[in-house]
């Protein structure tokens, strides 16, 4: 077990993380802060799941800023492979080098190491994260892991357990300080259990109205309080409606900013209808809400909030 007294005093506690995040305009509730705290302390990757636009990616960014370290981001997609995620040889440069050696008449004496050396290695995000040696360990954000296919997930499993990569021509590259890993998933499919077992898990839910109000005020500081409150209440009402895609926090913020730039001080039915496209991204949803729905939701939101 780790000796707690050897850690610099006051560096880390759940409250400190919460406060620090708040100072960076990220309102984290206790459970998120606990998950982050444990991920840092236990040196485990943290898997964040939640609907789109609840601030999963943002959390990684804020964490990197909070730890005063680099954020290395790997955006996942189907077919993501080692060559784009970990490393690749710079073939054109190798070709040029061969030509150069030939021109200088040194081709005979050249060895494989002259071509397959670190200079010719293109470092992709995962390798960057493992190689980062100066300063503190970087934050590695593996974004939308659910978009990657299972083959990549299996590969990731290997990296996350050993924090090392083997490049056949060079050897094994091991992280001096394992990066802090944040994985996010929109849950378009279930992440494999084996990967989940390596990680701590946290489901980020839509915030409470009060919390979302704080977020709006923090992120759109110029918004009048009344507008912010009405926007949040309306969005909360929308989240209960039968919609194809309910708005996330990102949409709330966009909307508040949009209304602000239109000079609005409060919500009015016509204004909502005109700007509904900022909040709802499906035509059928907009059709469902616009007009009568807007009025009804506004009344209900006003009554509820």
């Amino acid at each position: 077990m780790r000796d707690r007294d050897q850690r610099p005093a006051g560096t880390r506690s759940i409250e400190a993380i919460q406060d620090d995040f708040r100072s960076r305009n990220y309102i984290a509730d206790r459970s998120v802060a606990t998950a982050v705290f444990l991920a840092l302390e236990l040196e485990r990757p943290l898997l964040l799941e939640g609907e789109a636009g609840v601030g999963k990616t943002e959390l990684a960014k804020v964490l990197a800023a909070s730890l005063d370290t680099r954020l290395i981001r790997l955006q996942c997609y189907e077919g993501l492979d080692v060559n784009t995620a970990v490393y690749e040889w710079n073939y054109p440069r190798q070709m040029l080098e061969i030509r150069l050696l030939e021109a200088r008449g040194e081709a005979e004496r050249a060895t494989a190491h002259d071509i397959f050396g670190p200079d010719f290695l293109i470092r992709r995000p995962l390798l960057q994260a493992l190689e980062a040696s100066e300063g503190t360990a970087p934050v590695l954000l593996i974004d939308e892991i659910d978009r990657a296919d299972e083959e990549f997930e299996a590969y990731l499993l290997e990296i996350l357990s050993d924090f090392q990569v083997t490049v056949p021509e060079i050897g094994t590259i091991r992280a001096e300080r394992p990066p802090r890993v944040i994985l996010t998933s929109n849950r378009t499919r279930e992440v494999h259990d084996a990967l989940k077992r390596r990680c701590l898990y946290h489901w980020i839910d839509y915030p409470t109205a009060q919390k979302e109000y704080e977020i709006v005020l923090a992120k759109v500081p110029d918004a009048p309080e009344r507008l912010a409150r009405e926007v949040v209440a309306f969005v909360h009402r929308l989240r209960q409606a039968d919609l194809t895609k309910v708005p996330g926090i990102a949409e709330t913020l966009d909307w508040a900013a949009a209304l602000l730039s239109l000079g609005a001080r409060e919500l009015a039915p016509e204004l909502v209808d005109e700007t509904l496209g900022v909040v709802l991204k499906y035509e059928e949803d907009i059709r469902h809400v616009r007009g009568d729905g807007t009025r009804r939701y506004l009344t209900e939101a006003a009554a509820g909030g």
Binding site: S31, K196, W203
Partner: peptide, 20 residues
């Protein structure tokens, strides 16, 4: 690592670890 007497803290810690 957490305050073991604080129910919600222990709950959150367990959730991060056990819930997948």
């Amino acid at each position: 690592l957490v305050d073991i007497a604080d129910r919600e803290q222990v709950r959150a810690a367990g959730a991060a670890i056990f819930v997948r």
